[in-house]
Each structure stands twice: as C-alpha cells, then as structure tokens.
Deep mutational scan, measured.
Amino acid sequence: AQASVVANQLIPINTRLTLVMMRSEVVTPVGIPAEDIPALVSMQVNRAVPLGTTLMPDMVKGYA
C-alpha cells in the first residue's frame, strides 16, 4: 500500500516543514506520497495541521 505523509506534531499555520514534523504512514484517504517528504522540507503549510493529520496537496503552499 502507498504510504502518505502524516503530521508528527501540531504544525502551526505558515510553518516551514522540517523532517521531524513528518512521518510516513499507510492511511485512507491517501495524501501526499511519502517519497515526496524530501521535497516538502522548507515548504509552508497554509493551515494548522493537527498531530496525526494526513497532509493533502492543498495544505502545502507551492506543492500542488
């Protein structure tokens, strides 16, 4: 199954992502693919992302 990017902590709005904030997990619905984690580093989220939330393309500025 495809692993997705999941928030490893609460990520406040406009925060630049770092590796420690993200983990890969097989979840439904599928979000951003886990292999994109390196590309997500330093991108900003456009909303607060609670712990355990799957990151979707529309949550990350410049990803989609």
Rank of each mutant, 00 (worst) to 15 (best):
V49E: 02
I13N: 11
P50N: 09
A7H: 01
E35G: 15
I32Q: 00
A39F: 07
E25M: 10
T18P: 01
G52P: 00
L55T: 00
V60F: 06
D58M: 09
I37N: 00
A3H: 08
I37Q: 06
N46Q: 10
T54W: 02
T28F: 13
T15H: 06
L19S: 07
D58H: 09
S4M: 02
A7Y: 01
V26R: 08
T53H: 10
I32Y: 02
A34F: 06
T53Q: 11
L51W: 15
A3L: 11
M59T: 06
I13F: 13
V45M: 07
R23G: 10
E35T: 15
L17I: 11
N14M: 12
D58S: 13
V60Q: 01
E35H: 11
A64Q: 14
L10T: 12
T53V: 10
Y63C: 03
L55H: 01
P38S: 12
A7L: 03
T53Y: 10
D36W: 08
P57G: 09
V27N: 03
Q44N: 07
L51R: 14
P29M: 04
N46K: 06
V20E: 13
I37P: 01
G62C: 04
L55Q: 01
V6R: 03
K61T: 15
L51E: 15
I37Y: 03
T18M: 12
R23H: 05
A39S: 07
G62P: 06
M21N: 09
V6N: 00
L55S: 00
Q2C: 05
I13Q: 14
E35W: 09
V49L: 10
L10R: 09
R47N: 10
T54P: 08
A64C: 05
V60L: 11
A64N: 14
G62D: 15
I13R: 10
I32C: 04
A3F: 15
G52M: 05
S24F: 07
I32R: 00
I32K: 00
T18I: 07
I37A: 07
I13S: 14
V27G: 03
A64L: 15
V5R: 00
R16T: 14
I37D: 01
L40K: 01
T53C: 04
L19K: 13
R16L: 15
M21T: 03
R16Q: 15
I11Y: 00
A7P: 01
T28W: 11
Q2V: 14
S24Y: 05
I11G: 00
T15M: 12
V26S: 11
L17N: 00
V49R: 03
G52V: 02
V20F: 08
S42C: 05
N8P: 01
V26Y: 08
P12T: 09
Q9K: 07
P38H: 09
I11E: 01
V60N: 02
T18Q: 11
I11F: 02
Y63W: 13
N8L: 05
M43F: 10
L17K: 00
Y63Q: 04
V27L: 05
Q9R: 13
L19F: 07
G31Y: 02
V30L: 15
V45N: 03
P50L: 14
D58K: 11
D36F: 11
Q2R: 12
N14A: 10
T54V: 07
A34K: 07
P38E: 07
L19T: 12
V20Q: 15
L40G: 00
A48H: 11
L17W: 02
I37S: 05
M22V: 11
T15E: 11
P57C: 04
A34C: 05
G62H: 13
Q9W: 14
L40E: 01
T15Q: 07
G62I: 05
S42W: 09
R47W: 06
P12S: 11
L51G: 15
L10C: 05
V49I: 13
L19M: 13
A1Q: 15
P29K: 06
D58I: 14
L17M: 07
V5C: 03
D36L: 10
L51K: 13
A48Y: 15
T18D: 09
L51H: 14
S24L: 03
V6F: 02
M22E: 01
Q2F: 08
G52H: 10
G62Y: 08
Y63G: 05
T54G: 02
V49M: 06
V26W: 15
Q44E: 13
P12H: 09
S4A: 03
V5S: 03
D58N: 11
I37R: 09
T54S: 04
T15G: 08
L40Q: 01
P29S: 03
L51N: 11
P57K: 09
I37L: 12
N14P: 01
T54M: 03
S4Q: 01
I37H: 03
T54N: 02
T28Q: 15
V26A: 12
P29T: 05
A7I: 06
R16N: 12
V5E: 01
P12V: 06
L17V: 03
L10I: 14
V60P: 00
E25F: 06
I13V: 15
Q44V: 07
P50H: 08
Q44P: 07
L40S: 00
D58T: 10
V26D: 09
G52Q: 04
T28C: 05
S42P: 02
M56F: 11
V45R: 00
I11L: 09
R23S: 06
T18L: 08
M56W: 06
V41D: 04
E25H: 15
S42Y: 07
M43K: 15
L10M: 12
S4W: 02
M21G: 03
Q44Y: 14
L17C: 02
N46E: 08
Q2H: 13
V20R: 13
I13A: 15
M56Y: 08
V60I: 08
V5G: 02
A64Y: 04
N8G: 14
P29A: 04
R16M: 11
K61N: 15
L40P: 00
P57M: 06
Y63D: 04
M21H: 07
L40R: 00
M22C: 03
A48M: 14
A34D: 08
R47P: 02
L55Y: 01
N46F: 07
N46C: 04
S24E: 13
V30F: 11
P33V: 12
T18V: 11
V20H: 15
L19D: 09
E35A: 14
V41E: 14
A39M: 14
V20P: 13
N14C: 04
P57A: 14
E25I: 05
M56R: 08
A39P: 03
K61H: 15
V26G: 04
M43N: 05
M56D: 05
Q44K: 12
V27T: 11
D36T: 12
M56T: 13
P50E: 15
P12A: 12
I11T: 02
V27A: 06
P33W: 08
V30T: 11
A1S: 10
V20I: 14
A34L: 03
P29R: 05
V27E: 01
P38K: 13
T53M: 08
